[in-house]
């Protein structure tokens, strides 16, 4: 049966999405390791279905500033993919690529921002490539867009995009681990409901 809202997903469907997330984030971590020349692992990916205000709390409060890279998906799957990069992750990238770190987001110049966009773009593209290969769907991606602002506002972008269809936000994503420490960088995939139904049907897990 096709779902009308993200909270109607059953456990088999959620397991399937988690598996997609696992393959996607695993590939993204490998790509990241290669670029940075350091071994980066990924935590177990999770599928979360959250109310709007719950999602804001989960990401760490509305007003904290963070860097976000966003790519929009089109083609057979419509949706948004976001890379939310917190300061420890930003510094891991900058140190490996540019040999410098920053104390706060205010220290990010044009060059640093462009490095973050590139890293975000590579991780997202790798994730989507693995995802589309695994599921046999073709997905088009827009060029990446960058924002440095309150994370609450960044997270409302996928909410507003699909808010007319659901009171919930679904994200598939994981966190990176470097040198035994968690480096918070969320890779979040938010498909729209129609695409999600199409995907689950194609994979044969939807009983409809």
């Amino acid at each position: 049966m096709a779902i009308k809202s993200f909270d109607q997903l059953n456990s088999l469907e959620i397991d399937t999405l988690r598996e997609i997330g696992s393959v996607g984030t695993g590939n993204a971590a490998t790509a990241l390791s290669q670029i940075l020349g350091r071994e980066v692992h990924i935590t177990l990916p999770e599928v979360r279905i959250m109310g709007y205000n719950e999602a804001i709390e989960w990401i760490g409060g509305p007003e904290s500033v963070t860097a976000g890279v966003l790519v929009k998906m089109g083609g057979q799957i419509n949706g948004i993919m976001l890379s939310v990069q917190k300061l420890p992750f930003v510094n891991l990238v900058l140190e490996s690529m540019l040999g410098k770190t920053v104390d706060s987001y205010e220290g990010l110049g044009e060059l640093e921002q462009s490095a973050l966009v590139e890293i975000g773009n590579i991780m997202i593209s790798t994730f989507i490539n693995a995802f589309s290969g695994l599921c046999g769907v073709s997905i088009d991606l827009t060029v990446p867009a960058f924002a440095l602002d309150m994370q609450g506002a960044i997270l409302t972008v996928p909410m507003a995009e699909y808010g007319g269809m659901s009171d919930y936000l679904m994200t598939i994503g994981g966190n990176f681990v470097y040198n035994g420490q968690q480096v918070p960088c969320h890779l979040l995939l938010s498909p729209d409901i129609r695409s999600l139904n199409f995907l689950l049907k194609k994979l044969g897990v939807s009983d409809g």
């Binding site: 709007y52 007003e63 994370q151 506002a153 409302t156 507003a160």
Partner: peptide
């Protein structure tokens, strides 16, 4: 005041809503 939320106050106090993007 959360997202998709509204609060009323009378007399005094501060109402606040965080991180309005496209909202």
């Amino acid at each position: 005041v959360g997202i998709a939320d509204m609060k009323i106050a009378k007399g005094d106090g501060i109402l606040i809503t965080y991180a309005l993007g496209s909202c």
